[in-house]
Design a protein around this nucleic acid. Structure first.
Lengths: 95, 95
DNA sequence: ACATTTAATCGTAAAATTACGATTAATACT
DNA sequence: AGTATTAATCGTAATTTTACGATTAAATGT
């Protein structure tokens, strides 16, 4: 319940969804790549990345002066299963 | 993107998830039923119900002095499809 | 060595969320 | 008519979120 809520919270912002989709498309991104695309300051993007990371949805590996961000397979799988379980639980009984 | 975020936001709180699950189990609830179960004040529960309603996930029909709350089939279906689309988009490319 | 680049962190402000008690409005009961 | 019940709304406080610019730390390039 709390875990589902935390996962939902992680994707409960358009910027964070945009970041996840960008990572899905490009496979990897540096913070700067995202800052270029989103209408947000670098520090704000960094903050969203931190949120996604601590929710376990992405990983960040330092590569020299930059950090290479990736989707975290395990976390994304958990997101998928957790939310689809919840959805199914609700759909079953509402129809 | 914004819609996905709004739907996620609606379920981004344990109390709101609990309310949805309760509605799934019992089919219908009055505000008082929920207040009995959750460790929250009536006004707080009412607030969460309002949030779920304006996200389109539940309906509330006034029945005399009480309001009968139900899962909103269309909204729940949208939740399911929106979140599973997003999940799939992310899973595909992270594995 | 020194300047540049990159991203994290800090400090802070504004807005939104969460929670509560009190009040209100509407209906039902006596 | 008067009381009780139910849930919405109001007012408010505390916390969290979101966003920004400035600064810092670390690595790279000159």
């Amino acid at each position: 319940m709390v875990r589902s809520a935390d996962i939902a919270k992680a994707i409960a912002h358009p910027a964070r969804i945009a970041i996840l989709k960008m990572l899905a498309q490009r496979n990897t991104c540096f913070c700067g790549d995202i800052t270029e695309v989103l209408p947000l300051a670098q520090s704000t993007v960094s903050q969203h990345l931190k949120a996604l990371k601590s929710a376990g949805l992405i990983t960040g590996k330092v590569e020299g002066v930059r950090t290479c961000y990736c989707l975290n397979t395990a976390g994304i799988m958990e997101l998928k299963s957790t939310l689809s379980e919840l959805s199914n639980e609700l759909v079953e009984t509402c129809c």
